[in-house]
Design a protein around this nucleic acid. Structure first.
Lengths: 353, 353
DNA sequence: TTGCGTATTGCACACGTGTGCAAGACTTGG
DNA sequence: CCAAGTCTTGCACACGTGTGCAATACGCAA
């Protein structure tokens, strides 16, 4: 152990105004800071005895290299930035977990920032990332993809979009195959015997909404069922909007016998609205969602949905950045497949009365 | 705009190997880098005309100050670290959102790291935070609070614990009043007429579990109902554990008429198990939870629970750090009150047969 | 002993930003 | 026209780490 006197050699360390630097260790070991740097990094150009002495002192003073100083000279920060609309959204939280998983494996630190779907805030967030010199950026579910183009030009920082709009303008993206998955859901409903199927979407203009609607229409078409615009209603991707939209569907003269919802949160609100109307799922109306949130199987009835591998998608997004860092690839556009999961919320329609 | 020739004066900028620094701007403006620094910071010691010329150039080259260089000299990073067990847990996600909200308001960046309840990983995470010189740390729901004591000693970094064990060993914490809230829940069940009430807890050893159990027992005591150990079963804080625990309660000779669950996730599993047994909530068994997750009111029946203001608790934790940074306070132990929310999952017990 | 090669270490500069001090330019008053 | 004061700017160093180059010390062969 170091004596208090030795510690006294380090001005400020005793009372810890700042943490120990390699210069402090150099002073204690009686060598130059260069030697300390080499001993703690490679150790190749330093005599074994000297190196181990230095390492011992470093251990004793609890030395931690300053990432800021290191990144200043190395040119990279070993840090990435993640912009999300809202971490409290369970889909987003799952994605973030996957990102962080893989980042931690490779010793990258993760900055997390909520945009709250507010463009001004998104601008501030991106500016903060620029100042912190993140090595890469991942953006989930943003509507303002265009915002990131100048950032890429200026910083030359790779940006991976995850389920974003306008992903095609970017070199890197991870997207779920919305059209195919919603085609499967709708086909499932058709196979059960439904021919009067509603669709509750997200706010208009969202690419994923457009694609899911396209899959729905494609399935109807394939089965020779005419598309009925009155059965397609906008929601907001949350239970509130799902409930309101469902209420409108329930005012139609001829009720749908099944409803496909943009996502599970929307389905949650729709199912509640159906219950409030005194109807039962799936006896009166079948309901299907999208995402496969953890809670789906605990609902009554459990929700039929599309499994979207959120955590895996987060991992892929981070892996894409890692591949770019190591130069293993220049362009990445990953298309992830969804998987239909049939549970109790969908069933054959009751007999026509 | 700058001509390509002017841009050529900046080696590497044209092809953007690194972003522009104040030295680059100084060269373009024909002044020293000190003048640029002053112009872009305060602007007080610089002639107006010079300052505006510099600002214009900075704008044109898309200058962003390097946080690393700045923090090296300033001694603070304007960054905090958040350690969570798992972001995908909706309670945790809510807290993180609150933290990030307030941090963004004050221009602090947030590092997020999952520990996955793995002590080794938690150690690595904290080491990474040390190297990045975070100005403060917030830890949620960790079981290894003791880990952070040496970190505080070494870095002198303020640490705020949120719903952690052993919070009493630390100067700063934000906790919900578990005992009082669970006392209220249990009293609510007693007032409905229940006298045979089960409790499904978290894994043993968790402080919050101990406190919630204490509130439960206290309420029973106050009503003159003897404590029956066979009605108290361990879960794991997740639906799976809640289901398994409930299955054991359902094997008792005399079934409980109500069950108070450690949290809503546990209640989710318990309710499902009750349905699988062919019984109904609340007709046969009432169920209450803890947390008030967004999905509670969309369940069938909607879940009676304790509202835990997760987002607000996150904000308070961040605010505590900010207060410490500005020297406004030295010690902070905030106790947040829960609020009983009665919904459809609790009702009077059916008539004794 | 001398010469040469190698192992070990220190010097000095770089990264980008901030700031105390001094020097120069300019203004104002007499 | 000169002196004193103010305004504006540059120099030089600091923060903590990394690294090319030179210097020194050591071992070994001739």
């Amino acid at each position: 152990m170091l004596t208090p006197k030795q510690l006294g050699k380090l001005p400020g360390i005793g009372r810890a105004l700042r943490s120990a630097s390699i210069k402090d260790i150099a002073r204690l070991a009686g060598v130059s800071h260069s030697t300390v740097s080499r001993a703690l990094r490679g150790g190749v150009l330093v005599r074994d005895e000297t190196a181990s002495r230095i390492r011992k002192i470093a251990e004793e003073v609890g030395y931690r290299p300053s990432a800021a100083a290191r990144s200043l000279v190395s040119g990279h920060s070993d840090t990435i930035g993640v912009v999300v609309t809202n971490v409290a959204d369970p889909f987003v939280a799952g994605v973030v977990r996957g990102i962080e998983d893989r980042a931690e494996e490779h010793r990258y630190a993760v900055f997390l920032a909520n945009s709250n779907a507010d463009p001004d805030r998104e601008v501030r967030v991106v500016r903060a990332f620029e100042e912190r010199r993140v090595d890469g950026i991942i953006v989930t579910s943003s509507r303002v993809g265009a915002l990131y183009v100048p950032v890429m030009e200026r910083m030359r920082v790779p940006i991976v979009l995850l389920n974003n709009q306008h992903a095609s303008h970017f070199a890197h993206s991870v997207m779920i195959d919305n059209t195919k998955a919603s085609l499967e859901v709708t086909r499932h409903l058709i196979q059960l015997g439904h021919r009067h199927i509603g669709y509750i979407g997200d706010r208009s203009g969202h690419q994923s909404d457009t694609e899911r609607l396209a899959g729905y229409r494609h399935a109807l078409e394939g089965a020779g069922i005419p598309f009925d615009p009155s059965l397609t209603i906008q929601g907001d991707g949350r239970p509130e909007g799902g409930g309101i939209a469902m209420a409108r569907l329930l005012q139609l003269n001829r009720l749908p016998t099944a409803v496909f919802c943009y996502n599970d949160m929307t389905a949650l609100g729709a199912m509640r609205q159906i219950r409030l109307h005194g109807l039962r799922v799936p006896h009166d109306i079948s309901v299907a969602g999208f995402d496969d949130l953890y809670l789906d199987e605990y609902l009554d009835p459990p929700l039929t949905t599309v499994h979207q591998p959120m955590r895996e998608m987060g991992r892929i997004a981070m892996q894409t950045l890692l591949n770019i860092f190591t130069g293993e690839s220049n362009s990445h556009n990953v298309r992830v497949e969804g998987r239909l999961i049939v549970r109790g919320s969908t069933a054959a329609p009751k007999e026509e009365q």
